[in-house]
Amino acid sequence: MLVWERVVVALLLLSVLGGLFVHAEVTGERRWPTPQADDLVADYDRYVGSETFMIGTVTAADGATLTVRFDSHLGPVSLTVSGVEKSPRRGATVQVAGTVGPEHTFRADRIVVVNSSSDAKLYKYGASLVGVALFLAAFVRYWRLDTTRWVLEARRDG
């Protein structure tokens, strides 16, 4: 297959991928069928009593309740979360599953601490960067770009 033919096929595949980016966004409610932060920002009272699952950041904790900020395209919404068994620190990223209550309250059935602090997030990103470096080093060790044919081929000495 000629280079330009490969480029055309690649562009076709990338176009389909771009279509998926849009499709996934406009069908977001089907992938996450429970109300999300942007729904609560747009029309909070409509979702009072609804069960949902969301991911947010703890902005305050007093032992019995948490204040969790959920970000969305329409802006953030903060809820006072009760039913707290764990005591995540301020700045922690948490998953909450439970029921939306009146006046920006939330009764949690379960809370999972995803990142206990910004350090946990840094750890994840750091480990991921090491993963990128490891893969690139291994790839370059075993494969090379043949610039005459513009294809990747295995190194003979790899």
Partner: peptide, 16 residues
């Protein structure tokens, strides 16, 4: 256009 990168982390994204 509204869009999300979420398909990267899905079977469809991996196949493409």
């Amino acid at each position: 256009l509204p869009l999300t990168y979420a398909p990267f982390s899905s079977l469809g994204g991996v196949l493409l």
